[in-house]
Design a protein around this nucleic acid. Structure first.
Lengths: 243, 243
DNA sequence: CGGTTGCTTGAGATCCATCAATAGGAGTGG
DNA sequence: CCACTCCTATTGATGGATCTCAAGCAACCG
């Protein structure tokens, strides 16, 4: 089941029937593979097929004229890269593979038709959209009002939650392939400061991070430090009850 | 035409017929009026009717446990407060009136049906959603990688563009009712620094700001300073051409 | 008038950026 | 297996952007 993560994620948003799931899978075009550190959708493009991440991590970033880079978003396995809907998404940011990447694609119009045909698919896709949006709003809060230590703590909580949705968390450990330089473009900090702040998190015994593997040693305290509010990320019960 | 601004904005996203516009207007519930500095949708609420701003400015904010506040979004006259769709939006932020406010409401399910019935309405609402989202992503870039001076410049360019969509810009002047304290919660800065940065913008003869009225004295240079990219905000031509 | 709110200014502290250099790993080729 | 080269992580030192604390001023308002 190569695309099970995509479905696994969407199941959190609606009660998909086996038929719904089969219909969704039928829409997926063949996997493509690209190397790490390659852009695959650039600013100015207008994709009519939406990538679905199968394996690997993706960054959505903007390069400013002064050479600075800001990452607005991370796409994890199972994620749909762009919102569904009637409009092709005009790319104002670039998508780049942070790791070796495998992804499938869904034609936008076909996905939209599937949503019209099944209210459950429709709901699941809207749930996905709202969740993605909520995560980005949380990033605004982080960048505006959280310290470097809090930002890093919050980011690791976010990854923990999101990877948990698709079963990629083992205990409180998960694979975190981003380099410190990528973390800094995500958090609006410098590499030097990210490095020192990571050491501080380790010193506080909140995380252990060796190579690509991170473990949240004390998730509860980490969330408290980050002012992390799980319910905001989960979109939660109020939505689950609607059919 | 009390709700003309809402329609005026949506017309940028699709070629609405007179019938479409009449249908949209028919959905609007009576106007409500509330005083400045009052919250009207709070974190945890699940609104089933979506406010449409008729007159006044609204801030979407989150209060952190350490007392700090971050505004993620400003709603201007003509704006729809929440995305349409099948799911009631679970509020993870609070909406507050920055000024005396007049707004109408649209029941979510009725709006969703109207979108299903008219592909033009559907397109216009999706356009509105993508535009709103693009603006918030731009805020991430500002908070992460722009200096205080650039952030303020960019914000004034954003207001200029958005108010221009609904005809509320006169020459390069518009009404800007936010206090410096509200600007600081929007830009992730302190009031003291916002104050000094505003003075710097005035000293550079880029803006003049007296009371609530701001004038962009040199919009071109202001956009350059802000690394402002108009096409990103307008969502632009590629979308206009789809029918 | 006194009280509130918003704007302005000064001085000192702090967080974080920048510059610069070193060290460690992973891959590559000889 | 070594020399070489990237790239990433790390460390030190310095400077700067922005925050915080504190006070004064201006406008508005009952």
């Amino acid at each position: 089941m190569p695309h099970s993560l995509f479905l696994k994620k969407l199941r959190h948003g609606a009660q998909l029937t086996p038929g719904d799931e089969a219909n969704l899978i039928a829409l997926l075009r063949n996997d493509q593979t690209i190397e790490a550190r390659t852009d695959f959708l650039s600013q100015g493009d207008t994709p009519v097929a939406l990538p679905v991440i199968v394996d690997g991590w993706v960054l959505r970033y903007r390069l400013l004229q002064n050479g600075k880079r800001q990452v607005v978003n991370v796409l994890l396995p199972g994620d749909l890269s762009e919102p569904f809907g009637v409009l092709p998404r005009f790319m104002d940011f670039t998508l780049t593979a942070a790791t070796p990447l495998r992804f499938a694609s869904i034609p936008l119009d076909a996905l939209n038709k599937a949503a019209q045909a099944s209210s459950r698919i429709n709901q699941a896709l809207w749930w996905d959209l709202l969740l993605t949006w909520a995560i980005e709003r949380e990033r605004i809060v982080s960048l505006g009002r959280r310290s470097a230590l809090e930002r890093l703590a919050h980011l690791f909580c976010e990854f923990h939650f999101r990877l948990g949705l698709v079963g990629l968390v083992d205990g409180d450990s998960y694979d975190m392939p981003l380099t410190q330089s990528e973390l800094c473009d995500l958090l609006g900090l410098s590499t030097v400061h990210v490095n020192r702040t990571l050491q501080e998190l380790r010193r506080l015994k909140l995380i252990s991070l060796r190579g690509r593997s991170i473990k949240l040693q004390d998730p509860e305290q980490l969330r408290e430090l980050a002012h992390y509010d799980e319910i905001n990320m989960s979109v939660g019960a109020p939505l689950q009850s609607i059919t």
